[in-house]
Design a protein around this nucleic acid. Structure first.
Length: 732
DNA sequence: AAAAAAC
């Protein structure tokens, strides 16, 4: 095996990175990558899409929609048109993929042109493989059958959203969540003052790093200090509270037939096209949030922008609106050549962005498309074939489509990185630079995140020109409606404390570090009587969608997630975020915490710390700007009750129960059966006996359904009794 | 060392 991995380094794989090393390595990675990509790009003279079109014609709609077959078919035929471009890599990949499983890894990785880094990535692939295998087995057992339908179902549900326009599930938040506009000031630009060119317009006095202590909060927001922007900042002396109260609420919402008055429209005042301002106004959105007011004018002016503001605080519109305005101003997408792209770190976030922009895209006569992994290729290929103005993508699938010749970035005018700091981290950086290198220079670049720190410097230096920094959010945990608790607990109490905190009315997100941990904890919670489902990247997309929508609908009130859900994902009314494992760093703390206390609501963040994590956690709190001290706690303590928690009844939630909750009856196309949840919404958590969802009729479900949703449980077989024994089976 | 991101 090893022989088949030329270049595979056996040097110790990055044992442990210090901050500096990490930054250095990233820079080196960029340099290297840039070089090789440039070379690749120069070689790239693939013939245009004739082959492709023929191929497409051969596929009737019916042929596809079944993910797997599809891919096979596509790959089989795609050989020809890939030509020399990265040919060897493609071949190897395919060979690897279609090979048997683990043993092909050698070939897979060997063909990579960057083996030193693949140490990291390689391990990852391996674990994927492991999951995949198990999953496949499981799937065949029971889930898979439904999974296909699922894919269909997925598209179906998106269609539904489309019709619903803005008001789709995410919109309220993604679109116009209005939480943190009132946070203090962040001085994004300060670090760069001395580097010149970065646009340190504001205060020179601040030098230290972005991620600073709470002391910064007293500073006025950067945007407020920039009073040279004309209309842009007007009205934003007012705190976001005002904005929040007046912005999206219905009172001003015009009836569908009514004409929209734009004379006093904040978005029109920023210079956005009337069509966009009108569309927003129809949803009662007339006053821009601070981040929007601050960034939109500059973005409209074509400048490169760095914007800080949490997703859900209006960030999506901040980059979305000016981009659409620009695209609408001229030009038309040619086949395969998007004019703007948005990159996000997770599929869910990509969906959310896509959903949020959908009605606006439509209203200016443009086309957009979501391009992400785990979804059928077909619609994505077709859309690209027709021409897409705005492409919203996750890196992997986009690169894939580029390699297939389905997407071509040579005419991209605007490139946007959502959660930019995250995208600049190891593991993403490589893919991101690879993509950005394919975009012609001279275009506009917008980088947004709640936590913009020095980590993006590499990208900024490489790809941005004279960027303007805006922040309306100091990235500190200063939301007044958010309270933080850090509980120092004994290991033996962890499970019980977790269950008590999670056992509360309303939605709770539990964060843990690993996929396995998420499965395990979700399982433990269910055993104790708490309805919980795991969400992580080891699930297939169908499962991910189901879990997330069940959580959003309230059918499953507790979401146990890895950091896949840490950033950007908006769900209304998450009352508590419980961190069962400490976050990796203070930024992650802030992102995780940001899942609650949204839209000005109250929210509680509870972080558990075992004795050995004590110092780590306290430091995280300090760095995050949270003025909270660790306190000892054990089951039954008042802190828990204060957060709404209580001891669960111990009546286990079976896998079948969970399955039913995740998979609402299909009959009757009214969408998810609300009945079940409606009943349980009040007294959930008590799960008294088996009323609720059981009454609905799933009881008659044929035996074939049994074994239903096992994914979660089976995969986490280390869960329940087995202890860690199950681990080896995962090859971990 | 983990997670995420392609099949």
């Amino acid at each position: 095996m090893k022989a088949s991995r030329p270049g595979q380094s056996h040097a110790p794989k990055k044992a442990r990175w210090t901050r500096t090393q990490k930054v250095e390595a990233q820079r080196a990675a960029v340099r290297k990558q840039v070089k090789s990509n440039r070379a690749d790009a120069a070689r790239d003279d693939r013939p245009a899409g004739d082959d492709r079109r023929n191929r497409d014609e051969r596929w009737t709609r019916d042929d596809r929609g079944r993910g797997r077959d599809d891919r096979g078919g596509y790959q089989g035929r795609s050989d020809g048109d890939r030509g020399g471009y990265r040919g060897s890599r493609d071949r190897d990949d395919r060979g690897g993929y279609q090979g048997r499983g683990d043993s092909d890894r050698g070939g897979y990785r060997g063909s990579r042109d960057r083996d030193d880094r693949s140490g990291f990535r390689g391990r990852d692939d391996r674990s994927r493989g492991g999951y995949g295998e198990r999953r496949d087995r499981d799937d065949r057992g029971g889930y898979q059958g439904r999974n296909d339908g699922d894919r269909g179902g997925y598209r179906g549900s998106r269609d539904r959203d489309d019709r619903g326009g803005y008001q789709g599930r995410n919109d309220r938040g993604g679109y116009q969540g209005r939480n943190d506009g009132d946070r203090g000031g962040y001085r994004g630009s300060r670090d760069r003052d001395d580097r010149g060119g970065y646009q340190g317009r504001n205060d020179r006095r601040e030098r230290p790093s972005f991620d600073r202590g709470p002391s910064e909060r007293r500073e006025r927001p950067a945007y407020e200090r920039r009073d040279n922007r004309g209309g842009a900042d007007q009205g934003h002396e007012q705190s976001a509270d005002l904005v929040r109260d007046s912005a999206p609420q219905a009172p001003t919402k015009p009836a569908p037939h009514e004409r929209v008055d734009l004379s006093d429209n904040g978005f029109a005042a920023l210079g956005l096209p009337d069509a966009i301002a009108e569309r927003l106004a129809r949803d009662g959105i007339t006053t821009p949030f601070p981040i929007q007011a601050a960034t939109i004018p500059d973005a409209l002016a074509g400048k490169d922008v760095l914007g800080r503001g949490r997703t859900g605080s209006g960030k999506t519109l901040s980059f979305g609106l000016p981009t659409l305005a620009r695209l609408a101003a001229g030009g038309k997408a040619r086949p395969h050549q998007p004019r703007a792209i948005v990159l996000t770190p997770t599929r869910e976030l990509a969906m959310q962005v896509s959903d949020a922009l959908q009605p606006l895209v439509h209203v200016v006569g443009l086309r957009h498309k979501l391009v992400a992994g785990g979804m059928p290729y077909e619609p994505q290929l077709q859309a690209l074939e027709r021409g897409v103005d705005l492409l919203i993508a996750t890196p992997g699938r986009l690169s894939d489509l580029i390699e297939r010749g389905a997407a071509d970035l040579s005419r991209v005018e605007v490139a946007i990185l959502d959660e930019a700091d995250h995208m600049a981290e190891m593991g993403f950086l490589e893919a991101i630079t690879e993509i950005l290198d394919l975009i012609p220079e001279g275009g506009q670049r917008l980088l947004f995140s709640a936590t913009l720190d020095r980590g993006i410097d590499t990208l900024v230096e490489k790809y941005l020109v004279d960027p303007v920094t805006h922040s309306t959010d100091d990235a500190q945990a200063s939301v007044t409606t958010m309270s933080h608790h850090a509980l120092l607990i004994e290991p033996r109490d962890k499970k019980a404390v977790t269950a008590e905190v999670a056992n509360r009315p309303g939605r709770t997100v539990v964060f843990c570090r690993t996929k396995l941990g998420a499965d395990r904890i979700a399982g433990e919670l269910r055993d104790l009587g708490v309805v919980a489902a795991a969400l992580h990247g080891g699930l297939n997309q169908g499962q991910r969608n189901k879990v997330l929508s069940a959580f959003k609908d309230g059918r499953v009130p507790v979401l146990v997630a890895t950091d896949v859900a840490a950033r950007g994902i908006h769900v209304d009314d998450v009352g508590v975020v419980l961190q069962v494992d400490p976050p990796a760093d203070h930024k992650d703390y802030l992102h995780r915490a940001g899942r609650t206390a949204r839209a000005g609501e109250e929210g509680t963040v509870v972080t558990l710390a075992l004795p050995h994590q004590r110092r780590t956690v306290q430091r995280l709190l300090d760095d995050a700007g949270v003025d909270t001290q660790l306190q000892r706690a054990q089951p039954g303590d008042a802190v828990i009750a204060d957060a709404g928690g209580s001891t669960p009844d111990g009546h286990p939630v079976s896998d079948d129960d969970l399955y039913r909750l995740l998979t609402p009856a299909r009959s009757g196309r009214g969408g998810p059966r609300r009945g079940g949840y409606g009943q349980r919404s009040g007294g959930y958590g008590q799960r008294s006996g088996g009323y609720g969802q059981r009454s609905g009729g799933p009881g008659q479900r044929s035996g074939g359904q049994r074994g239903g949703y096992r994914g979660d449980r089976d995969r986490g077989s280390s869960y329940g009794g087995a202890g860690r024994g199950g681990r080896s089976r995962h090859g971990e």
